[in-house]
Design a protein around this nucleic acid. Structure first.
Lengths: 363, 363
DNA sequence: CAAAATGAGTAAATCGATTTTTCGCAGTTG
DNA sequence: CAACTGCGAAAAATCGATTTACTCATTTTG
C-alpha cells in the first residue's frame, strides 16, 4: 500500500486528445493503426501518449465488443504439474494474441464448474478452454451449448458433437504400455483407474487390453476401478491385494499380478503407497507404470515409468481451435488426439526376476 | 462452438427496466439493496430479472469504479504444488468477496513480473497479491509503489516498508530442522540453496545455523548456494561431493556430510538425483530434509522429511491484509510470519547407522 | 464549371451499469 | 393558501474507448 498522493487518476484518451490537439476519435484511430490520419497529427498523438504514459483501459475498450478479449480457462485443479503446465501454456498463448486469461479451478466439482462458467458468461468471454471434471457430456458443456458460448474441451474428453476437443491419445499410449509390459513377460497385470471420467478411462483400458490380449491372448488383466474418489480406491486396492495373498496361500503362487498400470497420477501414488505398506519393492516384487508423468518420478529409486502427456501440443491446438471459432470458423467440431511418449523407467522389470526375495526389508 | 441462433444478445438492465415498467436507475437500486423503493416496484424488478435471466455485467459494473473488483495474483510458476494450492486458495477467497482473481505466472522472470503488473495496472485491479521471483526489493514492488497500487507481498519476502508481507516462518522452521538433525547426532551437514531469493535464503540459513551451532558449537555446516538457476546447482553439488570423496580417500572418512538440508523444493530433487547418481541411499548413507513438502514425498521409499508451509494461513492472511488496505486501512505495513510444520520422515536417520554399507546396490 | 468523390477530422451515439441531479406529487406547516 | 418537507422515481451525467454519421475542404471527373 503506497502513499495516498500517488493515487492520481490515470490519463484517459481524452487527456491524450487535448494534449495532442485532436479529438479522442483521432487518437483511437491512430492507436488502431488507421492510415487516413495526417502524419503530423499521428506524431502529435504518439508524443502525447509518450508524455502522459497513456495506456488503453482494456475494460473500457472491451465494453462495446460483444465478445471481450478475455479467455476463460477452467481446470479441475491447479495442484498437479499437468494442469499447472497447462495453465502456464494457455496463459502465454492467450497473451500472444492480446487476450487476458482468467483461470479458475472447478476443484473436481461439476456444480462449481457450472457456476464458474456462468460467471465467465457474465464477463462475456470470447471463449472458454474447459477441462471437464468428468467428461464432455457434463452440465458445463450443456450450459455452454445452451448459451451459445464458444469453447474447446480438453483432457478428459474424446469427442463432442458441439465443441472441438483436444486430448492426449490415451488409447495409443496405453497400447504401447501394454506392449512394453507384455514384452517383458508380464502375463498378469492389474489396471487401476477412476470410473468417473468414463470415456477416457474406457479408452485407456480398451487400448491397453486390446494390445495386451492381442500379444498374449491367454493373459489375465484385473481391473480395480474406484467410483469417484481416491479415498475408496485406496481401500479397494488393499482388498484386492489381500484377496491375492489369500489365494497365494491357498493355491500356491501366481495369483498376484506382476505389474500395475495406473490410469491416472493419483492412482500411481496410491499404488506406490500400498506397495510401501506391504513392503513390496519395484521392480523386483512388482512393476509399475503410471499414466501422467511428474518431475519427482525420475529422481526416486526406482524411477517411475510413466506416460508423458504432450501438454504444449494440447494447449497449442486447443487455442488454435478456439481462436478459429472465435474468428467465425464454421464446420463440424473436430476431435484431436495428441500422441504421448511412454517413458519406461526402472519401476518396470521382468516378472520372476527376484520377486518376493528381500521383500519388505530393503534398508 | 454452438449454433448461431443461440447467439442472442443478453438482456441488459434496460431490458429489465422496461419489462418491470421502471427506469434503469430503479433496477440498479433494487439490485443494490437500496430501501427507498416501493415494495411493489421492487417485486416487479425481481420478477423481470427472473423472467429474463438477467445478470449484471461485471465489466460494465466496474467501469465507473476507480478500483475494479478484480484481484491480480502473480506467482513465479504454476507447476508446483505450493503455488498451485496458493492460487486455489486465493481464488476461493477472492470469490467469497465477490472479486474475480486473475492469476499470472512470471515464470521466474523479473522482467515478466513487471510487464504483468503493468497489465494489471491497466485493468485497474483493486489489489495485487505478488509472490516475487526474487525478494521484496525488486522492480515489481517499485512499479507498484510508483503507481500507487495496492498490494501484498508473499512467500519470498520478509518485510517491506511499503507493502504488507506474509510468508512462512522459514527461520523458525529451519531452526527446528537443525534441532532434529543435531539431536539425531549429525555433526556435519550440508545446506543447499539458491542465492537469488536473498532474504529468505538468508533467514533459512541463519535460522538453521544459529540453532545448530548453539546445540553443537563445534559442528561443521557446509553451504552450496547456486547463483540463480537450478542447472548450475546440480554441477556445484556434484563438485562438492567429488571433493568430499577425494578427501575421504586421502584422509580417511569423516569429510562427507551425514545429512543434507535443502532450502527449496527443486534443491531436494537435485539432491535426490545426485544421491541416485552416486548410489547413496537415505537414510543409511546420508539423511535428507527439504524445505517445502509435496504429495509424493510420503509414498516413496524412503519418505522424504520436509518442512510444510502453511499455504492456507499465508493465503488467508494475505487476502485479509489486502482487503483491509483496499477498504482504506491505514498504518505502517505489517510483516507476518506463519509457523510451519516439520515432518520428520524416513529420509532422516542417525549418522553412522550403517553408512556406506551396501551403498549403490540396493536392489 | 458544376457535380461527385475523396480526405481528414470531429461530434455524437454506443456499450451497460452506477450515481448524481432533478422533478413531480403528496402531505405539512405558518 | 403559499411555502416547505420528503419520498420515490425518472432523467441525465459518468466511466473510457470505439464507431458511426456527418462536416468541411480539396480533388477528381463528366
Amino acid at each position: 500500500m503506497a502513499h495516498r498522493q500517488d493515487q492520481q487518476r490515470r490519463s484517459s484518451i481524452h487527456d491524450v486528445a487535448s494534449r495532442a490537439g485532436v479529438s479522442a476519435a483521432t487518437v483511437s484511430k491512430v492507436l488502431a493503426g488507421v492510415t487516413t490520419v495526417k502524419p503530423e497529427n499521428a506524431q502529435r498523438v504518439f508524443d502525447a501518449v509518450e508524455q502522459l504514459g497513456y495506456r488503453v483501459d482494456p475494460l473500457a475498450s472491451d465494453m462495446r465488443r460483444a465478445k471481450r478479449r478475455i479467455i476463460g480457462a477452467i481446470m479441475p485443479e491447479f495442484e498437479s504439474e499437468f494442469f499447472g503446465q497447462m495453465i502456464t501454456e494457455l496463459e502465454g498463448l492467450a497473451e500472444q494474441r492480446g487476450y487476458t486469461l482468467v483461470a479458475a479451478s472447478s476443484r473436481e466439482s461439476e456444480a462449481r464448474e457450472k457456476e464458474i462458467l456462468a460467471r465467465m458468461h457474465d464477463w462475456r468471454v470470447a471463449g472458454v478452454v474447459l477441462a471437464p471434471v468428468r467428461n464432455e457430456h457434463g452440465p458445463a458443456a450443456d450450459f455452454m451449448k445452451a448459451n451459445g458460448m464458444t469453447g474447446v474441451l480438453i483432457d478428459r474428453v474424446l469427442s463432442d458433437d458441439a465443441f472441438d476437443t483436444v486430448s492426449a491419445d490415451s488409447a495409443a499410449a496405453s497400447a504401447e504400455v501394454a506392449r512394453e509390459l507384455v514384452g517383458k513377460g508380464h502375463r498378469h497385470i492389474l489396471v487401476v483407474g477412476l470410473g468417473e471420467q468414463a470415456a477416457t478411462v474406457r479408452a485407456r483400458l480398451d487400448g491397453f487390453r486390446g494390445a495386451a490380449l492381442q500379444l498374449a491372448p491367454g493373459m489375465r488383466i484385473d481391473v480395480v476401478l474406484a467410483e469417484s474418489d481416491v479415498g475408496p480406491l485406496r481401500a479397494q486396492l488393499r482388498d484386492y491385494f489381500d484377496a491375492c495373498e489369500g489365494k497365494d496361500r491357498g493355491e500356491g503362487k501366481g495369483e498376484r499380478p506382476t505389474a500395475v498400470y495406473s490410469l491416472f497420477l493419483k492412482g500411481t501414488l496410491v499404488a506406490l503407497s500400498e506397495f510401501r505398506r506391504r513392503g513390496w519393492h519395484c521392480p523386483n516384487d512388482i512393476s509399475l507404470v503410471g499414466f501422467d508423468d511428474a518431475e519427482w518420478m525420475q529422481v526416486t529409486w526406482p524411477a517411475i515409468a510413466a506416460v508423458v502427456q504432450p501438454v504444449r501440443q494440447i494447449a497449442g491446438h486447443a487455442m488454435e481451435a478456439l481462436f478459429a471459432r472465435i474468428e467465425g470458423g464454421e464446420g463440424p467440431p473436430k476431435a484431436r488426439l495428441e500422441p504421448c511418449r511412454v517413458l519406461m523407467r526402472e519401476s518396470v522389470g521382468s516378472p520372476g526376476n527376484g520377486p518376493h526375495e528381500g521383500g519388505g526389508n530393503r534398508q
